[in-house]
Simulated assay, not measured.
Amino acid sequence: MSAVLGGKHVLALIALPDATLDALRRDYTLHYHPDGWSETLPAGVDPVNVRAVVTNGSTGLSDSQMAALPALEIVSAFGAGYENVDVAAATRRGIVVTHAPGANAATVADHAIGLMLALARGYAPLTEAVRVGRWRSSRAERPTLTGARLGLVGMGRIGRLIASRAQGFDMTLGYHARRPHVDAPGRYYANLIELAAASDFLVIACNGGAATRHLVSSEVLKALGPNGFVVNVARGSVLDTQALIDALADAAIAGAGLDVIEDEPEVPRALLDHPDVLVTPHIAGRSPASLIAQRDALLASLSQHFAHALIEFAVPSA
């Protein structure tokens, strides 16, 4: 009874925009711990009161963490990813898990295209060359997107939006997924190595988690070849970081654009020092529009859940 009638305490374990924090504080008792939860519950949080947790796919929420929150009713992932939320444990405990599929998909797709253009045209190294006075010696031809071959790892919402943008460049499309999609553009490749061999740009846009860990391996990068670029806007775990470092050192691929990386925010010096590597700090999905959409989805999921919980308590089933 107390869990339903008591205060609506929300524990947020990730950094959130100010507007989202303001909205949560208006309607809930918010415990904000953007650095997450390691071994012990964050200071000042009474586990008996926490009815909702806000997290994301990277931070997640484990079975043991759920066990430490006896009043927990709902886990809301801020954004589309929820791979590190133990959904099986939540189901077993009767805890609702929500996320916001599609809320930032367009922004991620835009970012992927931007990384592809920047890598192909050499925006970063050429800007640096001009800064140090190497204008005349830096005007060699560069590849572009028009007519190039794009391989997509994943054909979900983001993959489809990247594909639609790529068609504006008359790119040849191929994709790898768990199964072919009859309505998807481009050719389906059951074998990722074959897709990489047929691509000038390999863009990773699939789900993270154990099933896709190191899916893009040294063999895949070798197949992509010395003129090929790899772009990752999915999860860092999908691309084998050491394999990428080795491929770049051996000039086995032309370059990489990374919005995510294993062990982020730590980035190996070998990647930061490479002139044909671009690294952005996991912001592919962040734009004013996408953050508003994610905020609205989060608030709606919490509001609907607590309204339903109150109705269930007020009107017991027969």
Rank of each mutant, 00 (worst) to 15 (best):
V48N: 13
R178L: 13
R178P: 04
G122P: 14
L119F: 15
V233I: 11
L5C: 10
A210C: 05
L221Y: 04
A314K: 08
Y82H: 15
L16T: 01
M1K: 13
R178W: 08
P34R: 12
V233G: 04
Q167I: 03
E73W: 10
S317P: 00
P316K: 06
V97D: 09
T20L: 13
A100K: 05
T29Q: 13
L150G: 02
R295Y: 06
H9C: 13
A129P: 09
L192T: 03
S290Y: 05
H9T: 14
H274C: 12
P268S: 04
I162P: 01
G154L: 01
I193G: 11
D250I: 00
A309Q: 12
E262W: 07
L13P: 04
D63I: 06
L298Y: 07
A211Y: 10
T144I: 10
G159Q: 00
D183T: 12
L72A: 13
A15N: 14
P185A: 11
V108Q: 03
F306D: 05
R139K: 15
E83M: 09
K222Q: 12
L248F: 06
V4N: 14
L221C: 11
A19D: 14
S290M: 03
V45R: 12
A106I: 13
E266Y: 11
T20F: 04
L278H: 09
D246M: 08
R269V: 12
A234K: 00
A148K: 04
L152R: 00
D27S: 15
A252N: 06
G209E: 04
A68F: 11
G79H: 07
V277G: 03
S64E: 14
R179S: 15
L173D: 15
A105T: 09
G174M: 05
A314Y: 01
Y189N: 04
S217R: 09
N191A: 13
S317Q: 11
G57Q: 00
E312I: 13
Q167E: 11
G228L: 01
